[in-house]
Nucleic acid binder design. Sequence first.
DNA 1: CCCGTTTTGGCACGTTGCTGCCAACGCGGC
DNA 2: GCCGCGTTGGCAGCAACGTGCCAAAACGGG
Lengths: 211, 211
Amino acid sequence: MTLSDVTVVRGDEELFARTAHLFESATDIACAADNLHTWAVSRPAPPPTGPVTDKRVRKIYRPGVLLNRTSALELRTIRAEIRITTQEINETILLDRRVAILAGDPGTGTAARTYTVVSKPELVQGICSLFEAAWRSATDLAGFDARFAELRLQAPQILDLLSSGCTDEAAARTLGVGLRTYRRRVAELMSALGASSRFQAGARAREAGLL
Amino acid sequence: MTLSDVTVVRGDEELFARTAHLFESATDIACAADNLHTWAVSRPAPPPTGPVTDKRVRKIYRPGVLLNRTSALELRTIRAEIRITTQEINETILLDRRVAILAGDPGTGTAARTYTVVSKPELVQGICSLFEAAWRSATDLAGFDARFAELRLQAPQILDLLSSGCTDEAAARTLGVGLRTYRRRVAELMSALGASSRFQAGARAREAGLL
DNA sequence: CCCGTTTTGGCACGTTGCTGCCAACGCGGC
DNA sequence: GCCGCGTTGGCAGCAACGTGCCAAAACGGG
C-alpha cells in the first residue's frame, strides 16, 4: 500500500492498519510522546524478528513518565535511546527520515484522534530537523533520573503545602524559607511534572501518587 | 474508665480504645468530617444492637465525598442525616452534647494524628453551638446532589481545559464564553471540590477520577 | 584565609487568577 | 408589550503567582 504525500487518518486503529508495515521495515525510528501509552498500539513489539539489530530507536518523553512508578519501570525495559524534555512537544513519529506521523490535538471531545502521515520529502526533512533540535535539547534519561530522585526526596513537603490549599506566603513561612525560594521550589516541581499551571501540577502529582 | 475534662490522645487506635464505649451508649451523635475514612475506625458499625432506634446521627461532609463515585454510593448507605458544607470545618464529633472530640491538624509529617477529647460542659456547650451553626448553614445531601449532578454534566470540558495547562483566556476563547464567565465556572467547580487553590482542585479532581 | 561555586531571598515587575459590581441580554409568564 | 428573574460578560481592583536580577550568605576546596 502506498500513501500519498499527506494523509490524515482518524483513530489509532486506522493509523495502525495503514502504517504497521512501515514500522516493520524501518531501521531508524524516532518518536516523541507525552506518555507511554500514546503510541502503544502502533508501537511494534520489542523486535523479536531475527537479524535486524542495527535498528536505531530514539524516544523523547515528557518528565511525567518518571512520576508514575510503574511507567518509570516500564520505561527501563524499552530497547531504545530515551531522553526527557520539559518542552511542550507535538507527539510525533519519524520513520527512516522518510515518513513522519504527527498526532493531532487529542483535546476536544471524544472524537477519535487524528494523525497526519507525511511522506513528502521536503516536509519530512523539515520535521526531522525540528525533531533533531528537540532531541539535542532533551536530557538523557539517566541524567534526568538523578535530578529527579533528589527532587522526590524533598518534594513531599512542598506537595503537602500545595495540596493544603494555603497561599505561597503561608507555605514559605511554614518551611521557614523566603517567599522567593518557595516559589522557586514550586517552579522546579512544576517543571519536573511538566506542568504549566498549578491545576495541572496538582492533577499530575495526584496521578503519580505523590499525594 | 473516666476521662478528665480535656484529654489529648494520639492516633486513631488510642482514640478508639478510649472512646468506643461512649459511641456505644450515645443516642445523639453529630460529626463533621472531610471525607468518609476520617472517623472510619472509630465509627460504630451500623447499629445492629437491638432496641435503640431513637439514635440520632448527623453528619456533615465536604463536597469532595460526592466526587468519588464509590464514596458517593457508600454515603447513601449510612444511616444518618447527612449534609454537605463548602465551609472549611474542623473535623469534630459530638456525643450526646456531653463529649466533644476535635481532630488535630493532620498536616505536618507522618506523626499520628492527635485528637482532643473534651467533656468540660461549658466547652462542649460552646462547641455544640458552633456545630449547630455549621449544620444549619450546610445543605441537605439530596439538594446538594441535584446541583452536583448538573455540574458533573458540564464540568468535563472545564476540567479538560484546566488540565491542559492553558490560560483562562485561551480556555474561555475555546469555549466561546467570556473570561468572566469561564472564571465563574472554575470558581463553582473549585467550590464543589472544596478546593481553595487550583493545585488542590487539580489534585482532588484527579483523585475523584474526573480526569 | 581567599576564591569560585552554589543557594538564598529581597525587590521589582509582569502575568494570571479571583471577585464584586453592574449593565446588557435572554427567556418565560402574564 | 411589560415585568421579573436568571445568566452573561465587561470592568475594575486586588490578591496571588512567575521570574529575571542581583547582592548577601553559605559551602568547599586549595
